[in-house]
Design a protein around this nucleic acid. Structure first.
Lengths: 347, 347
DNA sequence: GGCGGTAATGTTACCGGAAACATCGCGCGC
DNA sequence: GCGCGCGATGTTTCCGGTAACATTACCGCC
């Protein structure tokens, strides 16, 4: 295990074969786990492999086998916390299966950038493409691009989704926890500030909210659309229909909740005494908001791992498919100071 | 430009050559901008290229030319805002130069993970490696790993650095703006909460702070070390040496500032009336903190682009080097409500 | 003891490009 | 009129693997 000579070229299987006194094919076979090799031969080759610090040349491998070990990941430019961690998890899972994630970030609203990114991916002989920006528009565009490789667009693969959810009854254990918490505090008039509705994930989250309310025999007190950001949460917070008697607001994520908190503070509305606010994601900062935010913590990394594993299964990597059986971590309710029972004297 | 037949194999230069009635080498030459090709021939080939929707196979290209168009990026697992945008910018610049960034995230404290990541990169025949986690420990480790490819570890490439800064006088226009702002408000006793000191960027930022103060004839009123996070900022905020008569605190980034704000609020210390707080980075959320945070906005994407361009120059891509001349955007001071003149009656 | 069968290994072709080298054809100078 | 030089293009080889096919060598059996 001596360090490689600085200028030394990387050893090829031919070098290894020569050193071991076998043919390069024997080396190749051994590398692929072929069992029919005599122990003596095997040992010689293995020693040579270590001796020469052999590392496969992936370019040659993918050229020859016509199947690369790279997966393209298309991600939304401004990585929100959820997607970011999802990608982290997916990247880990890919690495564990011997794949590498080629991450291409793009601004999904910039057609030219999207096309450019797609063109680049085309030339990269990828095993497949995983799109992490579940916007309807982007999804269509990618599908149209007609890659010759497997394509998986991140859909509703929520770690907390219960097993039996049908397409007509979206369920999200995280959203259930949010609604259960507020209802158990006594809230009945709850407003929802959604993410951008052209994101399928956003629509899904809102539907899950409605479904969760319905299970309590309640209906939403209206909703507004934001953009995942504090700024848009702030705007939504300024035009909250307070006259409807709402006592709680659920935000699509913690950033939106932050904007809401500020808007309410500026209007002199006390949180949580007059209105409760809940976030979603539990970003590290949310504990230090004013007031500290009640939210739910979702294991996005696991979500990413699961997503990647199902992708690997899709492209036919059996080994990886086995790992899919990871037990899903349910979302955790995090109760802090932005939620409280509704003010007395209100219906 | 008809869409590719779904099942159609990708065209190779041989296919193009046959279609154009030339040799594959002529195609290859044309693709590389070789000028000595007769216009008539050139046109035929170009038409065939378009007709067949030729896309180069990068695996073959890198195998043959022994130089790939991929750049490995080693990034710290928990991407802070700055690094994240830096990578975004670097990725864009790379893409524009025809390179793709292979992003490998890692937890720099987990030796096994680091080694694993390095091993993976080894097999990826990369044009070079760009490390975005400027921690001393990680840097050493990467250097030891002895890649046979160019390696650039993100160092002090601050977009706002003035042209004439010597190694002994670190300068950061962003930090200058922070200090100038506070001093012009009348502050003279300023405390600094740094990022982790094993990050060279963090140390550099602190040195720049000290240098900026010195230019005003002042000295820091002490400092504490945090970890880029709100939680550590909060802890630092609880043990602030208020007895020293400090009137302002500068945080290494906005998250730390958020923690500080909360800690001060809990101690009943009014911001900005008793103590001013400044952040660094201007994350989108900082406008909605309580109170809205004064900070500086840094063009990290540009920093990434510049970094990538100098990297491309390093690995000898002349085309890219030309682009390096991008004019640097100076950091912008963003004054909000967390800073004010120091309380009267104090020295 | 020669033959068929199979396990272990070797040989050759091929993937899609790039580089080195070879060839062709034409204008020009002597 | 012929050879030379050079521009334009073609041919071959190589990059480092994988896959298909070929070849040993040894075994058991009739």
């Amino acid at each position: 295990m001596s360090p490689t000579e600085p200028g030394a070229a990387r050893a090829t299987i031919y070098d290894v074969a020569r050193a071991a006194g076998v043919s390069h094919q024997t080396v190749s076979r051994l590398l692929h786990g072929f069992t029919g090799i005599r122990p003596a031969t095997r040992e010689r080759v293995e020693r040579a492999l270590i001796e020469l610090e052999y590392r496969p040349n992936l370019a040659a491998r993918s050229l020859a086998s016509n199947g690369s070990r790279r997966i393209g990941a298309l991600v939304y430019e401004l990585l929100e916390v959820g997607p970011r961690k999802t990608i982290q998890g997916a990247s880990d899972a890919a690495r564990r299966a011997g794949y590498l994630l080629d991450i291409v970030t793009l601004d999904p609203t910039d057609d030219a950038a999207v096309d450019e990114a797609l063109t680049i991916m085309r030339g990269q002989d990828l095993a497949g493409i995983l799109a992490f920006a579940p916007m309807d528009l982007l999804g269509d565009r990618i599908r149209q691009a007609d890659f010759a490789v497997p394509l998986l667009i991140e859909a509703i693969v929520d770690p907390g989704a219960s097993a039996d959810d049908g397409p007509d009854a979206p369920t999200d254990a995280g959203m259930d926890a949010v609604v259960d918490h507020l209802v158990s505090l006594g809230h009945r008039d709850i407003f929802f500030v959604s993410g951008p509705r052209e994101w399928s994930a956003s629509r899904y989250r809102e539907e899950a909210f409605v479904a969760a309310l319905r299970r309590h025999g309640l209906h939403p007190r209206g909703s507004a659309e934001a953009e995942w950001s504090a700024a848009s949460g702030y705007r939504a917070g300024l035009s909250l229909p307070l006259e409807l008697g709402i006592t709680a607001v659920v935000a699509a994520n913690d950033q939106v909740a932050l904007g809401l908190l500020r808007a309410l503070a500026e209007q002199g509305i006390a949180v949580p005494h007059e209105i409760s606010v809940m976030g979603f994601d539990n970003i590290p900062e949310s504990e230090y908001f004013q007031p500290p935010l009640s939210t739910v913590s979702v294991d996005y990394e696991q979500k990413g791992r699961i997503l990647m594993n199902s992708f690997l299964a899709l492209i036919g990597d059996a080994h990886a498919a086995a790992e899919t059986a990871e037990r899903r971590n349910p979302p955790q309710l995090v109760v802090r100071s932005s939620t409280a029972p509704p003010p007395v004297g209100r219906p």
